[in-house]
Amino acid sequence: MSDQVKITCDELERDGFSQIPLFECIVAEVSEENKSKEGFTTVGYALYFYIYSTWKGRSMYLEDLYVMPEFRGFGIGKSLLSTVAKVAKEKQCVRLQLNVLDWHTSARDFYAAKGARDLTVEEGWHLIRFDGQGLDHLANEAPKN
């Protein structure tokens, strides 16, 4: 889905490494002798940020969990996910939340095997988004200061 990526490296650096970062990231690295075919030693990452529930309190949202295909099946994804969960618990978050595309059954199975619940089926939640013209239109309806 690389065709859908619209963010620049500068924006990513600004948002993640400013005085008040909008996200945090954990990376998985391998030794130089085990680097990827392309020569990378960073082979995976988990990007997350904090959210708040008026029902439950502090929460964490996992935006991305990625492991390069040639490094999958070695427990790297599980380790990244477990580390994010540990950070969430250390920050007193009561839940870790994420979205998975309906067609991505291997990811859904992975999370389910780790104890995740599918709220789409269980509670009937729908993912709602405002973006583009919808976001512009909604913002233009806001009262003037």
Rank of each mutant, 00 (worst) to 15 (best):
S2H: 09
S2R: 10
D3N: 10
Q4I: 08
V5S: 06
I7V: 15
D10I: 00
D10A: 15
E13Y: 11
E13R: 14
E13H: 13
E13S: 11
D15G: 04
D15K: 12
S18V: 05
S18Y: 01
Q19E: 13
I20W: 00
I20M: 06
L22Q: 13
F23V: 02
F23A: 05
E24M: 01
C25F: 02
I26E: 01
E29R: 09
E29F: 01
S31F: 06
S31K: 14
N34W: 00
E38L: 14
G39L: 08
G39V: 04
T41W: 00
T41F: 00
G44N: 06
A46P: 04
L47W: 00
Y48E: 02
Y48A: 03
F49Q: 03
F49C: 02
Y50K: 04
Y50R: 04
Y50T: 03
I51H: 06
I51N: 12
T54I: 12
T54D: 11
W55M: 12
W55S: 09
W55Q: 06
K56V: 13
M60W: 02
Y61D: 04
E63A: 13
D64K: 07
L65N: 03
L65H: 02
Y66C: 07
P69F: 03
P69Q: 13
F71W: 13
F71E: 09
R72I: 13
R72C: 10
G73Y: 10
F74A: 11
G75E: 09
I76V: 11
I76W: 05
G77F: 04
K78D: 03
T83C: 07
T83E: 13
A85G: 06
K86W: 01
K89M: 12
E90R: 14
E90M: 12
K91Y: 02
Q92A: 12
V94Y: 12
L96R: 03
Q97C: 12
Q97T: 15
Q97L: 14
L98D: 01
V100E: 02
D102T: 09
D102N: 10
W103E: 07
H104I: 00
H104T: 07
T105E: 14
S106H: 12
A107W: 10
A107T: 09
R108D: 04
F110R: 05
F110M: 08
F110E: 03
A112F: 09
A112D: 07
A116G: 03
R117H: 07
R117C: 03
R117E: 10
D118A: 11
D118R: 09
D118P: 02
D118L: 13
V121K: 07
V121E: 04
E122D: 15
G124N: 01
W125V: 14
H126S: 14
H126N: 15
L127C: 05
R129P: 00
F130D: 06
F130K: 15
F130W: 15
Q133W: 03
G134H: 08
L135G: 10
D136L: 14
H137P: 00
L138S: 13
A139P: 04
N140R: 15
E141T: 12
E141A: 07
A142G: 12
A142Q: 12
N145Q: 05
